[in-house]
Design a binder for these strands. Structure first.
Lengths: 187, 187
DNA sequence: GAGAGCATGTAAGAGGTTACATGATTCC
DNA sequence: GGAATCATGTAACCTCTTACATGCTCTC
């Protein structure tokens, strides 16, 4: 289970709270290939403590809510390293747009083109975000830690670019088939 | 919920059983972008009947188990078309390999290279499968139905190729950083 | 005789999402 | 005065996976 190991990875970097894991770690990096929900993170942290992979201590704060700071344990480090070396869990993608496209013969071509256009603008915005992060990341990349972050980001960029190219191809293919059918009708 | 709509799509093509949906429809096409489990399909079919989107009748067979044949209803067709036009649900990808890579500074470079090599051979096999299907699909593509199938497959091909290129880049980057560190040590 | 194919289903659990509640502080 | 930030958590729900059970037929 990768969420568990992603959390172990972040705890290995530094002890921290569930809140920080969600807002400063997941949402700002791995969310692109492993989105995680707040509830899910808190639940998994409890499980890590149950399994002895992490420990927790409460920090009492006067002006803010108390915090539970989680730290990785020795067996947690072992488990993380084992998983990093051994795991061959396959990737899972679920893309509703492809389902729409697969059955798109039940709507007319113009409606389909609109669906594709909307998808394009959504993915373009996402690409811009990734590019912005990339500019700040690529410059200095001297450590293994930075390399890992850079490479995962670069797959994101590459996939996004491929997806956008494909969206254009798809729109073109739909348009040209539409023309063909119109010509056939007018004969 | 896309599984529901994917099933509606297949039922719209032809009335059929849960068994056929799993083995002849999902596993042979949309599984690449929307994998579906047998249990999940049976459950969703029941839900479709509850919601009035599908009807079912039992076909009694003497030599084989009886079959429940599901058909799409009028309101099911309407719901399918509405969803095909309106849905903007985002894609979700979860890729454990990227989590491994992101935290790969906790294992040594050689172990990481092995992880990347294994991933490469896995994705190469998958690409070959997709290419084999593509050859049989692309030749005749004259209807909207065939176009949808072809385009979804082509995204699969394109993404897979991008992924494989990236895997090579990643291996190269890891190797060259490894060399740099070795040189630094020997000084 | 073993295994694959046909066909349905139950039970249990893991993984993930949505909505809500609390309550102080800081910033606009 | 209202929104955002900090910080944790519960409850309910949806989605998905794993393991198992049944029982007949056909092929190797």
């Amino acid at each position: 289970m990768s969420l568990m190991h992603a959390i172990l990875g972040f705890l290995r970097r530094a002890p921290q709270t569930g809140y920080a894991l969600k807002n400063e770690r997941f949402d700002k990096s791995v969310a692109y290939f492993w989105p995680a929900d707040q509830t899910q993170i808190y639940k998994t942290l409890e499980k890590l403590v149950e399994n002895g992979f992490a420990t927790t201590e409460i920090e009492i704060q006067s002006d803010r809510p108390n915090r539970k700071i989680y730290s990785i344990s020795k067996s947690g480090k072992e488990e993380l390293e084992r998983w990093l070396r051994d795991s061959t869990e396959p990737a899972v993608t679920r893309d509703p747009l492809l389902v729409q496209l697969f059955f798109s013969d039940y709507i007319n071509a113009d409606d389909l083109l609109e669906v594709l256009t909307k998808a394009k603008s959504y993915h373009e915005k996402h690409l811009e975000k990734l590019q912005a992060i990339h500019i700040n990341t690529i410059a200095r990349c001297t450590t293994r830690e930075e390399l890992g972050a850079r490479l995962t980001l670069e797959l994101g960029l590459k996939s996004k670019q491929a997806y956008l190219e494909w969206l254009d191809q798809a729109s073109d293919a739909v348009t040209s088939m539409q023309r063909k059918h119109l010509r056939a009708k007018h004969k």
